[in-house]
Every structure is written in structure tokens, then in C-alpha cells.
Write a protein that binds this DNA or RNA. Structure first.
Lengths: 408, 408
DNA sequence: CCGTCTATGTCCAACTAGTGAACTCTAAGC
DNA sequence: GCTTAGAGTTCACTAGTTGGACATAGACGG
């Protein structure tokens, strides 16, 4: 599952060439973070000497990674350096519970195109991958990007991925998909490296890079949909745990004698917060056509029953988040999924519950925010995953252009 | 709180000298992990060329960091390289609830001396630091190590440390110490850098490096004493969280209508598992002179009441650990504190509880073990902290000898 | 007991890559 | 128009790693 570049290029750590590689990355990172920089600025921010920067910029320019606009505005003779838009392309694919989403971005962290289409829950895995391939191809054509520039794909699936085999564990959302190896499937169809993770982790990454988590290093993303999951980012990286199943906040026990959960226990957070268990509560009064979205909408319109239900859900999520806080002490918790649309109606009770159940020193620095990306968090997270897995080096060591297959 | 070396030496990242520095560290680390290596072995494990290793070893030997024993056993002409015992000395100090412990170790991860003495809970902070200084000095004299070689001190305190100020938060164990800055205190007395952390984190680090956590990268250390705390090691490093209060497993809520906890909530794990709450249960039948140690001893001798109490404690701890597993999915949980002496009497119920309440995929790879170091875990963890905070670089950049003050 | 073999460690020349200094270039300011 | 100051480039120099040649010393076989 590691990048294949490492299989081909025998990297000698400790040699000058590795130092050079590191310096190339340093420059690219500096440019990307700033958008565009002059060489003198690069020298100052990276600490490298002007001469070195000059050489590196030339090398990057010749390699096509970077663009040098001959003269910038106003200055004396400063040539501004920026990542060339088509130096490398990353793709994010997200299989959601009802939608398939695809996004295309470049190495400058810009989203070039994004599209989603409804997907039938009952469609087979093969159909799903076909649709994904199709949509990816459509977007590639639409944006007119060069296929050979695709550096990697991030893929989000709504279920647990086995770290060893890359196969999808049992999921209630896509029942027919259990046991498939989504990464492998998509890799075969697209011919580029594919990095897979579950939707909660990608949501976390998405919000961290583009959404409510900007500027933070530790973040917990709580996604409430038909289940309840959490994605954890620790120190800027997705934390999956040794077994790859970290973040299963949905099945922490809140009440040992609570409702029976599908996992076999009783009183899991999920039995108090997920759509699967919450919607039936409203069935007598509101009918059985209700979705979580609908409940949120009604609640915002003032429906007292829905408001109450959402507040209760918030309180229970808050209990779970309090546990999370006591154990992990993240600096930010971001609420995603449909439920986030409820805004303060659900955040208020969450905060209240956290304040009550978490130890004060852990809760003090915590901010609980709604996701800023809505349903886009996962695709964008998939993009971010592709970017991070690629590392900055993939676009530097020349294998990018060589390794991408020739599409015809 | 950062190493002072960084203030003095202006490090130019990306220059060849930084590469050289990195290679020095690489070699030292390889030697330390293996105990002793020949140059050829160093070259193989580090990936450096034999020529480079030759140069580096000479440099390290001249600097006194490393010793080269002229000829090793059996081989052809392999000179074995090992860390010179007195290249650097680290000290671990642990303030426990009843004991003060001090250990002296060298950079080869060998413990040269270790001693503990009882400490009165009511003693003032000043008294405590006096005692610690005294004991440290005694051990230094006893082992005959060179004072100028002391690279750093790790200090364990039984309470939360504010990451910003380094001051000790309120602690029920050492009431008079609240607000003091233990690191600063000890640094002034000993004149060397002091790194502070709480006992649970240090216990985790100790067990990871020397005890039941060898070979694992992620570990949760649960310490049950008058309270319940957890130390988390993620990817080989102590995880403290942004606010520095991660691992507060003692105050996750198990039962919203349970006993009132000193933290103000009800049904915290602590109210079911810590000595403070458990011992009173046995008061009617066993009198009020009981300690946790005593209960464990009685349970091992067959006392049914004590057995039952310990099993109940185990079950509750198991519930907490199950939450921890679902959220963090560590590969190993190590039980420390007095309670660990109960062995299977407490581990069995913990495992059973974890098996019941954690999601199967998270619990499957988990091993729950008793601590291998007993009450020594914290001091040894303090040693490990000093070693890790020092980094390998401290002993390489020459500032070690210069920065250590002249003792008289 | 001696020659051969093999792996170790060292030395040297070659090469890679970063750096300071000198230099050129351009536009702004007077 | 002249000066000036910052930007980028060139060049000689230096630090540092590497491959290959070489010396060394034990093991092995005869």
C-alpha cells in the first residue's frame, strides 16, 4: 500500500542527493503555502541561500513543476514563482450513502472541478466503480487536464478498511460491497495509485485542510448519519490506530442498560444519536417518510418535536465527545453530516453536555464547530489524502510523468 | 522549555552540515538500539557507506561519545562500537504518593543506580525538592559519575502539569504543591535541564521502553491508585494533547446516575475503581486500615470479599478501556499501579469487559498486560523522558559539556 | 604450518551540492 | 541622468558522501 515510487527508486538516506531532494520539497512547500513567492522570499522563508534557491528554481522550472512569471507587478525585477497549475493533478472520489462525489484538484491545493451524482444504495460494487470511473473521466475531460499528470487518487468509502489487505469490512451502508478491495478496483480502472480511507477520516482531513479546522493540528470530526463515526487527526495526520479502527465513537457505551445496538451491545452512542435509531422516534407523530435532513429542516422551522429530538441527540453526542476529550484532549471538534445543518440547535446541547461531563481542563480549550464544507468534506478530504500520500516528492522525483500510464 | 542548544547554535536547515549532523545521529541511534555494532554493521543498518561510517565513528570517538573496543570476540577484525558509558548521564526523579524514587542511567539505556525512599505526603514542596536533590546527589556520588556529563533530568509528578507555565495543577495527592513549578525548582537546584510530566505518562513511557510495551509503538498505560489515570504513547511518543491533559480516563462517565465523584460529576470510572472509593466498601467487613495493596494481598490469599471487589474494579476498568479502544485502538494496554499485582484476578475481568463493550475489530488485536516494572515504571519513564527530550543531538553538538554548569 | 579466502576498516580521488562574494540587471527616487 | 537598492545569476570554494583500491587479520583447508 506504500507509494510505488519507493519500490523503484532506491533511496539512500543520508546522501547528498537526499538532501537535495529535501531542499526541493522545502521550496515547493514554501511556494505552495504562500501561493506565490519571489526567489528572494523563498530564500528567506526556507533559510536556504539565494544561490541554492536560484539553482532549485531553475531545476523545478525545467521539470515543469513550477512556473516563473517573468515579471511581477510593481517590484523591481522580482520574478514570482508559483506552482504550475498542471504540474500534477489529484483526484478525490467519495462513495457516500446516497451520493457519489468526485473532485479534481492541483498541487496548489486548488479545486478545479467537483461534481456529484445520486447513487443507488443497492447498486453493486462493480456498478459503483463503473460510475466512479465514468464520472472521473467526465471531469478529466471537462477540465481538460492532462491524464499523464494525475499523481494519485484519494478514495472515501463509508465503512472500515482493513489496513493489511485493503479490503472493505462489513458495512451496513453498502451491503454488497463487503470484502471488495476498493482501492485495488479503482486503481485497475484508472491506472494510478489509489489511497483509501473511510469517510469519517477523510471528513476530518477535509475540514482540517479546507474547512473549520484550518490552523489547528488536532481535530476530531464527528459524522452523524445512519451511524456515528469519528475521524481523528493528530498532529496533522490521520490517526488510524494500529488496527486501523480508531475513532469508533459510535459504539462507546453511554448506558449499559440502554437500547440494543446492531453491534450487539446496549446503549451505544449510536442508539441515541444515529438516524437509524432516532428517526423511528418521530414516526408516530411525523410519519415514516422522515429523513435526518427533514428533521433538521423541521427543527429549524420550529417544530418542537424535532427540536427536542435534535437537542437530545446533541446531548448524547456531547457525552461521547466528553469521553473523547478526557482521553484525547483535541483542540477542536467539528460536527459533520446532515446533522451539522441544525447549527446551534445541536451544537448548544453538545457543548452543554461536554461542559458537564468532560473534566474542566480538557474542555476549556475545546471549540465545537459545525463543519464548513457540508457534504463536500469527504471528497475534499480524499483530495487531501491523495496530496499527502503523494508527498511533495512524487512530483519532484520525475517518476510522476514516467509512472503514469499512457491512456489511449 | 525547548532545548537550549537551539538557542545557541544557529542551525541552517538544508545545508550539508545539517546532513552531517543527521548522519551522526543516525549512527548513534543505530548503535544505541543494538547495544554494540561493528562499523560494517552500522553501514548496513544505516544505509551509509563504509567510508562515511569510518569518518563518523572516528569523529564520535574523538568526541568521547562512543567507545571502540579494539577487537571483538570471534570475528575477523571487527571492532565493535558502543556508546561510551560516561558520554552522557540522565537522571529520573519520581515523586510518588508515598515514595520518592531516583534513577541514574546512561545513554546506552542502562540503569546505573536506582534508589527510593519513603516520603511523607504532608511534606512541603520545598522539603520534597530538598529530599530529591539530596538523593540525586547521593546517587551521583555512589555511582561516581561525572557531574558535567549530566545531560538532563526527567521528573515525574502525581498531577497535571500545565504545558504553558510548567506549574503543577491541583492535585489531591500533594495538596501543598499546587502552583509550584517542579521543573523550574529542580532545575535551579541541579543546574541541568529538567523535563516534567505526570506519573501516568511516564509510566507509559517506562513500560514502553523497558517493560511490557517493548516492541510496540502504541500503548496505553492505566494506573490505578488513589485515582485512575492513563498515559498514552502514540507512535513512540507521549501524547499529551493540545492542552496537555490527554489520558484522563478516570473521569469518563460510566453511569450518569452513579456515585458523585470529586470532579463534580457522577459515575466516573474513578468512583468505581480508585482506592479512594473502593476501600470504603470493605470497611465494614475488613476494618479501615486497609490499603489497596492489602486488598490485593488478601484477594490473592483467597479472601472472597476482596476478590469480588477486585473483579468489580476490573470490570469497570474494562469498560473504560473499551471506550479507549473504540476511540484510539491501541495495540496494547498495560495495567500499572498497586492493582497490577492482582494479576489475573483483575486482568481477567478487564479483558472480559473489553471483549463485551469494545467493537470486535478494535478489541481483536488488543493485548492487556500487567506492568512489568511495578513501582519502577515511573522513574524509568522519567529516565526515558530525559533521554528522548535530549534527543540524540544533545550529546553530539558539543554543547553538552559546555552547557553543564561547573559544580563545586 | 602455510597459502588462500573473505570480510573489515581506511585512504584517496571523484563527485554532489550548498554558500559567500562578486557581478549584472532593473526600476524607483531624487 | 545618476544613484541606489534589491533581485537574480555566476563562480570559485568548501563540506561531505561515495566508490574503489588497499591493507589487515582471522578462518579454513590442505
Amino acid at each position: 500500500m506504500r507509494s510505488r515510487a519507493q519500490e523503484v527508486v532506491v533511496e539512500t538516506p543520508g546522501s547528498q542527493s537526499s538532501l537535495h531532494r529535501a531542499n526541493l520539497e522545502r521550496v515547493v512547500r514554501a511556494v505552495r503555502l504562500a501561493g506565490s513567492l519571489t526567489q528572494a522570499e523563498i530564500a528567506r522563508t526556507t533559510g536556504l541561500s539565494a544561490a541554492t534557491v536560484s539553482n532549485i528554481v531553475r531545476e523545478l522550472k525545467d521539470g515543469g513543476t513550477v512556473e516563473v512569471t517573468p515579471t511581477s507587478a510593481g517590484g523591481r525585477r522580482a520574478r514570482s514563482v508559483s506552482l504550475s497549475g498542471d504540474a500534477g493533478i489529484v483526484i478525490g472520489v467519495d462513495f457516500g450513502h446516497t451520493h457519489l462525489r468526485v473532485a479534481i484538484g492541483n498541487l496548489a491545493h486548488q479545486v478545479l472541478a467537483e461534481e456529484s451524482e445520486p447513487m443507488d444504495v443497492d447498486s453493486s460494487a462493480a456498478q459503483g466503480f463503473d460510475r466512479a470511473e465514468e464520472l472521473v473521466n467526465r471531469l478529466i475531460t471537462a477540465t481538460g487536464v492532462d491524464r499523464s499528470k494525475i499523481a494519485g487518487v484519494g478514495l472515501g468509502v463509508p465503512g472500515p478498511i482493513d489496513v493489511e489487505s485493503g479490503s472493505l469490512g462489513s458495512t451496513a451502508i453498502l451491503p454488497g460491497w463487503t470484502g471488495t478491495r476498493p482501492g485495488e478496483e479503482l486503481r485497475e480502472r484508472l491506472g494510478v495509485p489509489v489511497h483509501v480511507d473511510n469517510d469519517a477520516n477523510l471528513g476530518a482531513l477535509g475540514e482540517l485542510v479546507w474547512g473549520s479546522g484550518k490552523g489547528v493540528r488536532d481535530l476530531a470530526y464527528i459524522k452523524v448519519a445512519s451511524g456515528v463515526g469519528a475521524g481523528l487527526v493528530i498532529n496533522g495526520k490521520i490517526y488510524r490506530g494500529p488496527g486501523g479502527t480508531a475513532g469508533e465513537i459510535g459504539h462507546i457505551t453511554l448506558d449499559e442498560s440502554g437500547p440494543v445496538c446492531r453491534c450487539g451491545n446496549r446503549g451505544c452512542l449510536e442508539t441515541f444519536a444515529s438516524a437509524r435509531y432516532v428517526l423511528p422516534l418521530l414516526q408516530p407523530s411525523h410519519g415514516n417518510e422522515l429523513t435526518m435532513e427533514g428533521v433538521v429542516r423541521l427543527a429549524r422551522d420550529g417544530d418542537p418535536g424535532c427540536r427536542r429530538v435534535i437537542a437530545d441527540v446533541g446531548r448524547h453526542i456531547g457525552s461521547g465527545v466528553a469521553n473523547l476529550c478526557n482521553l484525547l484532549n483535541p483542540s477542536r471538534v467539528v460536527l459533520g453530516g446532515d446533522l451539522a445543518e441544525a447549527g446551534e440547535l445541536v451544537l448548544g446541547p453538545i457543548r452543554e453536555s461536554v461542559g458537564r461531563y468532560a473534566i474542566p481542563s480538557a474542555a476549556r480549550q475545546l471549540s465545537v464547530l459545525p463543519g464548513a464544507l457540508g457534504g463536500r468534506a469527504e471528497v475534499l478530504g480524499a483530495l487531501a489524502l491523495a496530496l499527502s500520500e503523494m508527498g511533495d516528492s512524487t512530483l519532484l522525483d520525475g517518476t510522476l510523468h514516467a509512472s503514469a500510464p499512457a491512456f489511449t
